[in-house]
Design a protein around this nucleic acid. Sequence first.
DNA 1: AAAATACATATTGTATACATATAAATTTCG
DNA 2: CGAAATTTATATGTATACAATATGTATTTT
Lengths: 236, 236
Amino acid sequence: MKDVAKTRKTQLAEHLKVSILTLRLQPGTDLDEVHLSDAFGLSRTPLREVFRQLAGEGYLDLRTNRSARVSEMSYTTLRDFFLAAPMIYGAILRLAAANAKPVQIEALKTAQQAFKAALRDGAAEERALANNRFHEVTGEMSGNVYLLPSFNRLLIDHARIGMTFYRPQSGRMVENLSEASQQHDAIIDAIETRDETAAAQLAEDHWNLSRDQIELFVMPDALDVPMGLPPLSKPA
Amino acid sequence: MKDVAKTRKTQLAEHLKVSILTLRLQPGTDLDEVHLSDAFGLSRTPLREVFRQLAGEGYLDLRTNRSARVSEMSYTTLRDFFLAAPMIYGAILRLAAANAKPVQIEALKTAQQAFKAALRDGAAEERALANNRFHEVTGEMSGNVYLLPSFNRLLIDHARIGMTFYRPQSGRMVENLSEASQQHDAIIDAIETRDETAAAQLAEDHWNLSRDQIELFVMPDALDVPMGLPPLSKPA
DNA sequence: AAAATACATATTGTATACATATAAATTTCG
DNA sequence: CGAAATTTATATGTATACAATATGTATTTT
C-alpha cells in the first residue's frame, strides 16, 4: 500500500486532465467532491489538494465556498489564445531544438507514432490527446521553467479547441490533419539536427495550419443556396 | 468568524510570498507544516492547500513524503530567465497598452508612487516588493490568461534576483535605479496614451537596464590591483 | 399572487486523530 | 572500533468528524 495511494491521487489527476482535455468534462462543469472521492477511493482531503494543483495548472477554477469548476472558455480566451500561441510555440520549439536530450527525442518519436496511429484509426479524443502529448514532449525538451507554465496552459485549450476540429468534417480538414502529421515529422528532424531556425519556422507553419483548421470550423463553407430574396411566403 | 478564517489562509499565502520574494526565505529552505500552522492559527489541512497553490504559482516545490521547499534558483534558471524575460515582458507591456482599464491605470500610478517612496527612503526589501507590485499591475492590465502564468513566474525570480541588486553597491547602480523609475513613468505614459509600440520599446529598454543592473552585480568592477604575477610568496 | 423571510438540506471548509514513510539513533555483530 | 541492522522519533499523508456557508423549499406577509 505504498505507491498505491500516491497512484490514486495521480490517477485522479490524470483522469480529470484527460476528461477536461477531451471535453468529456465541458468548460464550466461543476465537480462534486464527495462523488469523485468515492469514485476514486480517496477521502476529500487529498482530493482537494489535487483540485488546487489542477487549478494552478489551469484545468480548474476554484471559488471559495463554491464547487470547483472546469475552467471556462470564452471568445475572449480564444482571442487571447490566438495572440499568445504563435510566440510561445515558436520559442518553445526553438529551445527544444537547442536543448533536446536523446531520450526526449525518442519520446517524441514514440508520441508521433501514436499520433499517426490515432489519425489512421482513432477517434477524435485519441487524436487530440496524441497531438497534445507530442507537444508536451517538445515543452519538456525546451526545459525552460519560465516558458513552460504558459505553454502548458496553451496546450490545455489547444486540445479543447482541437476536440472540435480533430473531428474532420470536410475533405479539406482531413488534408490538413495529414499535413500536420508531416509537419510533426519535420519538427522531429529539425530537433534531431539541432536546427533552431528550422524549428522556429516549423512552429510558425504548424501554428498557421492549426489556425486554418480552426477557422474552417468557425467559418464553415457557405450553404449551397442561391442568393437573392426568398420567394414571398405563401400563407398556409 | 467568517472572512477571518479565509483571511488566515490569504495571510499565510501573502506572508510566504513576501518572504520568498525578499529572500527572507531563501531558495531551498524547508518549510515545517506544524510550525507554520501553529504560527498562523491554522490546521495543517488548509495550510497544505496553500502549499499546493503556491507550488502551482512557482513559489514552492513539493516532493511527496518530503517537506515543501522554497523553489530553487540555479545558474540554469538564471540563464532560462534571461532567455524568456525580454519576450514575455515585451508582450505583456504591449497588451497592457492595448487593454488597460482606467482603474488599473490608477493602480499603476499608485504602485509607482510607492516605488519612488521606496527608492527615497526604503530598504532593499521594500524596493524589490514595490517594483514587483508595479509589474504585477502591468500583468493584470494585459489580461491575457495564457501569458500571465509565465509572466508571474518570471516576476518571482526577478524580485529574488533583484533583492541582490536593489541593494545598490556602487554609484552606477544608484543611477540605474533612478533611470528605472523614469522608465516606469514613461511606461505609464505609453499605457495611458494606448501607444503599444512605445510600450513594447520601453519594455525592451527597461529590460536592458535591469540586465545591466544584474550584470553589475554578477560582474563587479575589477579590483584595483595591478596586473601581472603576484610577488613570490614569502614563507612565514 | 408575488415577494420576502425563515427554515431545511446539501456542500464546502477546518480540525483532529490516525496511518505511513523517512530520517536519526542506538544496538548488535563482525 | 566500524559497519550494518533494528529500533525510535519526527514529519508527511489520509480519513473522519464537525463547523460554517450557500442553496432550494416552504411558509408567511403584503
